[in-house]
Structures are given as structure tokens and as C-alpha cells.
Design a protein around this nucleic acid. Structure first.
Lengths: 309, 309
DNA sequence: TCAAAAGTGTTATCCTTACACCCATGT
DNA sequence: ACATGGGTGTAAGGATAACACTTTTGA
């Protein structure tokens, strides 16, 4: 291997938990960066490298791990002197641990980084009053008409205005649009430290982009894989489960239909116990039926298969 | 960066086309490997690096590109002397070009590498007569009962026997299971060059695993994104379109319902022309409505949203 | 005339969505 | 009493799956 084409490999982790109806992400440097580690030559594979490394840092087992994306854009990494940095990112799901150790990294609500992504109490006012006006100005200031049209179209497609057209999965596209429009401090163009955190707290390097990738992936995944349960305590009420999904999706769900969906799929079973401190009528406690992970490798078909081939 | 933790970055491409109702993949070394290139320090990003590199090799524009996965398992790479190799893989969609140049790489049907994945003429006989018996023997030969049960379960989950339970998306899981069972020549354990290509042609390094990842991704993607059209000529009949989807999915589809699905979603429009050489009644020609790529960033919702927030 | 494919029309069924309503507990 | 959440039932609408049948060409 020639030296000039060599690169150092960095593992970046988006570790998610849900606590108190808030989706939270593990951060370091006081919330300014995602945990990263160098991929050591001793590790057998990337997954195991990440797993051992995160567990050493957090003293908490990682339930679920999935690779997110590999980034290497030169201009987005503020790359160090020597060679190039490749950053391989992972999404991990856990529950927030009882802080063991001293310099435990901090859990932060992910809406601190993407405040416009929280629509749980209706259409985001931040989007309507700040983001859309600024984006529209940015679209209008393009010199040629084609660019103006294209920008307007992208604004429409990513920040669908109404509650019906809002697509919670487009987290990355929205962040990238804000970046491109220079509305986010990571983009060099934007004014420095005016309006602190109005458009979310910044992170080092491209970590906010990686986080956006993780949020988007998780929001998509909860719809077709039973991954929420990795974030739940061993037993829980159905409302707690719903609140967790709502925290991730950033939207309110329909109670009855949510419940029907859950038990239709046979995802949970009653523990037999009752939770009393619910604020209302006591609720049955449920546990996740771990068997379903083994039984099904479910994947939604949308192809009109023919019966007899 | 320290030298011992540095790695060389390899780009591996799964370039797919559909020609004559066969899904094909671009290969080198006479079909024994996927095209790879070293990620050069001059490239701005991984995507552009791959794109320029493939287009230089194939003299054909790459319509669609998407990152697949980043592999770095030490034991699967037969790694060279020096440092470690990280291989970042991509999926690209094109149409087969009129071979320009001399040492044009070869297009191979991907079912040559995964013959058990083709169920277009009913349940695969290869699965029923060869694969399942051997896998069951492998499951039975485990010493402890728990392992036996687990192997049996995985066989059931990946190679669902009947046509109804077969899940065409589990390409990677099936290949990995065969690998683990030692039924595939890449796994060191299996007997060398007995039964040439009975269980598919082998590839160098872990390229067949990468190919499996690409096939799986594409099979999943055609269900919720209009990517088939990247593989189609500018105008086509609905049956041609159906045959292309069938080629990818490895299954037969229901004609009428397929057509309904296509025009319900407004994906195509008539060109006004008629194709005569269809073998039957002449068919209307259609073209893809490129606008839909811009209009919608569609993504299927399965969450029961509540109306009034 | 027959095979092959293009098309049209209709029906049954299931899933999603929405609405209405009752139950049990704490304050 | 009432607010809060738990829990049940059901009706309307839309999408999907399946079936039957007609039309138009080439061999």
C-alpha cells in the first residue's frame, strides 16, 4: 500500500436511548461531538471493534448495532494534516445506563441538534417562522431562474409545510439543505455565533450529518422492524411504548390504532402484572416477545406476485 | 496517523443492468471478480471517485449510485501483506452499453453466482434437491442440541420452503448461511473444485458476499422506489418493464395487478408509439415520468398518525 | 386457426382509518 | 365530579388479489 493513498479509519457511533419520552444520543465533549474511536488493527471486524469500544466507554451492553454510512468528503471533515480520514458510522440502540464511572459521556436529546424535527405538538413553529422564510430568501437570491425553481422544489419536497405532507424520514435531506443554504454554523459561510443554537446545536466535523443519518435510518426502521424494543425496559405499558415511538418519529400517533397494530403483529405479551402509577387507570404491563426476532425475517412485499408461478 | 492503524481503501462496485430479461452484473477477470479500484487521494468524495472510475472503465454513464456497505473482516479478505484493507462497496444501475473499447469487462447474469435465487419458473429445484438436504445434514451434525435447533431455525427462516414463504430479499442471509455451512467454495473448509459451480460460481475475496448485498438491496428497493427505470431503455412496453422487475426479484408477477400498480402510481406515460415485435398484439410504448423523482421523496408510512396532532 | 401477448372489467377480501363509547384510578 | 389514561367494538373506504373475458397481431 502506498502511503499517499492510505487513510486512517475512524469509527463514529450514534448511540440512541429513549428516556422520559425523549430520544437521546450519547455525546462527548459536553455534547459537541459523537463518540469516536480509531479502528485498531487488533479488531476482528468493524462491528466487534465498535462494540467493544463503546461498551468500554459506557459500561453498558449494546443491544443492536447496524452500520450507517461511510463518509470521506474531504471538504466536510476539516481533515487533519497527514492522510485522509474515512469515517465509518454506526447506529446503536441501548437503554440509558445507571451512570457507572466518572467521566461518563452525556446523553442529550437529539432534538437539541435538530429542533425542527420535533412535531409532537403540532407543526413546528420553528419551521414556519424561521426556517421556511430563510430558505425562501435563499431560493430567491439565486441568479438564474432554473436554480431558483430547483431550490424552491427541494424546499417543498423536504420541508413539506402541512402536517399531512411532512415526511419525518427526510432528516438528512433537510439538514443537508440547511447546510447548503448556509443556515447552519457548520457551513463556513454562516455568521459565527449569532443566534446561539436557534437552528440546533452544532457539532464538531460532520458529526451532525452523521447524527442526521442515524435519526433518519431509525425513523425508517421502526416502521418495518421491531427495533423499538431495544430501547424499552423489560416490561412496559402500551402507552410507554407509544411514547417511545412518538419520541423517535417526532409525531403523535393514534392511540387505538397503534395498539391494534402492535397486538395484530403479535409483538408483545402480557407479563400479568399491572402498572399503577400511570396517572389514570392502571395499565397492563407487557414484554417484548423476543421469539419474533427469530421467527420472522419479515420484509414487506409490495410486488403483486403471481400465484402458480 | 500511525502507520499500523492505517488502511488502504478499496472501492468495489456492483454494477447492474438488465438485458434480455436477465439481471446482469459487471465483472472483471473473466467473471471471477467485481470491478474494484483504489480510492485515490485526488477524489473529492467516495461517490465521485467511484463514478469517474467506473465511467472510465465502461464508457457508460452511471445513472444511479448508492453506497452498500463497508467491509473489513480480516478473515474474509485474504488480506495482502501490508496493512489492512477496507472495502467500501457501491451499487450502481445502468444499461448495458454497446461495448466500446477492447478490454471491456464482462456482463454476467447474477444467477450464475446465485443459481438458487431464481424462482421465476417455480420453486427452485436446486434448493429442494441439493441445498436443503445438505443444510439439514449440516444442522444435524452439530454436537449440542441448542446449536442443532438454531441451525434448523435459520434454515427455515432463510430458505423458506414453499413459494409463499420464500422471501426474495434474504439473499445475503442465504449466502452467509451457505458460507457458514461450508457449502460454498469461498469457505476454506469445502472440498476444492468438486462439483464446479453447482452452488454458483465463486468469486475472489469476499466479492460474492458484496454481490449478495447488492442483490438484496436492489430487491428491497424496487418495492418502494422507482429505480427499475434506471435499467430500462427510454421507452418500453409494460411487459418489458414487468420482465425487468421479475428478473431482479427472481419471481413471476401477476400481469394485470402489476399494470394497475404501475399506472396507479403515475410512474409512466404513453409515448404515443406502438411496439410491433412483441410476439403477440402490438403494445403501447411508455416512458418513465422523470418528474416523479423530483415531486416525491416517497417513503411508505406505516405509523398510525393521529390527525389533529 | 392457434398461440401469444395486450388490454378491460368486476368481485371479494383485507387492512387502514376514524369514530364512539365504556372502564378504572387518583385528586 | 372530573381529569387522565386504559381498553373494546365497529363501520366506512381504499388497496390488493383473483378471476373472466375480449382484442390484435404473427406463424
Amino acid at each position: 500500500m502506498t502511503d499517499k493513498d492510505a487513510a486512517s479509519i475512524e469509527l463514529t457511533a450514534v448511540i440512541v436511548a429513549v428516556t422520559g419520552d425523549e430520544p437521546r444520543v450519547l455525546t462527548i465533549r459536553g455534547g459537541g461531538a459523537l463518540p469516536t474511536g480509531v479502528f485498531e488493527s487488533g479488531h476482528r471486524s468493524l462491528q466487534t471493534g465498535l462494540r467493544s469500544w463503546v461498551e468500554r466507554q459506557t459500561h453498558h451492553p449494546l443491544g443492536y448495532i447496524e452500520q450507517l454510512y461511510t463518509f470521506a468528503d474531504r471538504d466536510r471533515m476539516e481533515g487533519g494534516a497527514g492522510g485522509r480520514v474515512i469515517s465509518i458510522s454506526y447506529l446503536g440502540l441501548t437503554r440509558e445506563g445507571r451512570a457507572s464511572g466518572e467521566h461518563v459521556p452525556a446523553w442529550e436529546s437529539w432534538y437539541r441538534y435538530f429542533p425542527w424535527e420535533d412535531w409532537r405538538s403540532g407543526p413546528s413553529r420553528l419551521v414556519a417562522r424561521v426556517i421556511l422564510p430563510r430558505l425562501r430568501r435563499w431560493a430567491a437570491e439565486a441568479t438564474d431562474a432554473a436554480t431558483r425553481r430547483d431550490r424552491a422544489r427541494r424546499i417543498r419536497a423536504t420541508f413539506g409545510t402541512s402536517e399531512e405532507t411532512w415526511n419525518e424520514e427526510l432528516v438528512l435531506q433537510r439538514y443537508e439543505l440547511l447546510y447548503e443554504a448556509g443556515l447552519v454554523p457548520e457551513a463556513a459561510r454562516s455568521g459565527p455565533r449569532a443566534e446561539p443554537e436557534l437552528l440546533g446545536r452544532r457539532m464538531a466535523h460532520d458529526h451532525r450529518r452523521i447524527l442526521a443519518t442515524g435519526v433518519a435510518r431509525l425513523r425508517a426502521k421502526i416502521k418495518y422492524r421491531p427495533v423499538v424494543f431495544e430501547l424499552m425496559p423489560p416490561s412496559f405499558t402500551l402507552l410507554q411504548l407509544q411514547r417511545a415511538v412518538e419520541a423517535l418519529a417526532g409525531r403523535r400517533l393514534h392511540k387505538q390504532n397503534f395498539r391494534r397494530l402492535i397486538d395484530q403483529q403479535g409483538l408483545v405479551e402480557e407479563t400479568g402484572e399491572i402498572a399503577t402509577a400511570t396517572g389514570g387507570r392502571p395499565a397492563k404491563l407487557f414484554r417484548f416477545r423476543r421469539e419474533v426476532l427469530l421467527e420472522r425475517a419479515v420484509a414487506g412485499t409490495k410486488l403483486p406476485l403471481s400465484r402458480s408461478a
